[in-house]
Design a protein around this nucleic acid. Sequence first.
DNA 1: CCCGATTCCTGTAGGC
DNA 2: TGCCTACAGGAATCGG
Length: 271
Amino acid sequence: MPELPEVETIRRGLGRQLPGRTVLRVRVHQPRLRWPVPRRLGREFPGQAIDSVERRGKYLLLRSHAGTVIVHLGMSGSLRLADPQAPRQLHDHVEWLLDDGRCLRLHDPRRFGAVLWTTGDPLTHRLLVHLGPEPLGRSFNAAYLYQRTRNRSASIKSLLMNSRLVVGVGNIYASEALFAAGIHPARAGGRVAHARCARLVIAVKQTLRRAIRAGGTTLKDFADSDGRPGYFRQQLQVYGRADEPCMCCGTPLSQRVIAQRSTFYCRRCQR
DNA sequence: CCCGATTCCTGTAGGC
DNA sequence: TGCCTACAGGAATCGG
């Protein structure tokens, strides 16, 4: 489900609500997520005040003095602040009871998400240590993208979605950014010239910034930490629009599987 | 190292 | 209505 704009939307919501709150108790109803929820979380996190809510790629970090909770939402995960009295829904797997009488709940039907606990520097955790630059940061620039794509035969789309190259760009925003840059998603990374890398970097940043401003994309069930949907769906140019006219030239948009995922593009505007 | 395919899991939409 | 298949916002892992 969530790509960087959706995770960032949740981070902003939680960042307004959680810092300063103390976790009274962690309840794990289903520990079998992408990886088992560590038992230490329930022993070591309660009693801690949450210092900050940060994001690295699509990972959320709830930092406390004793350690950091690392949350990944996978394909179908969401985090909601709720009244603990409200009945738990099917697939509400983990809940954190807070000292203000509310609770944070992780809902994740497909269980591709993860909840981990680390007492060290979370950025050196094995899942985070090899992550590429943040797409909205300065180090994600034309020179970097050009250098990293040289001699690569994989499609530019798969490289954009490779978190070792750049984090946070998933299946929706890869299609959107490639359309905005006029680059065919199946083009080999090594065949994207420098000027096009520059355009692509700008397109990625602009697409993600606009999506964040709209509160993310709700295709089916994405909601922020207060349960509100995102509105970027109305601004999608190609994703989910197979056979509909290109916003730019009117040609019916194409859909095909690239990098094992449904990909949407305009065969006339993207080369 | 790089690449593409497979895998984890549940819900839902569409065809018959 | 029911049954079956395909597909869905991610990404680690494996075999070549």
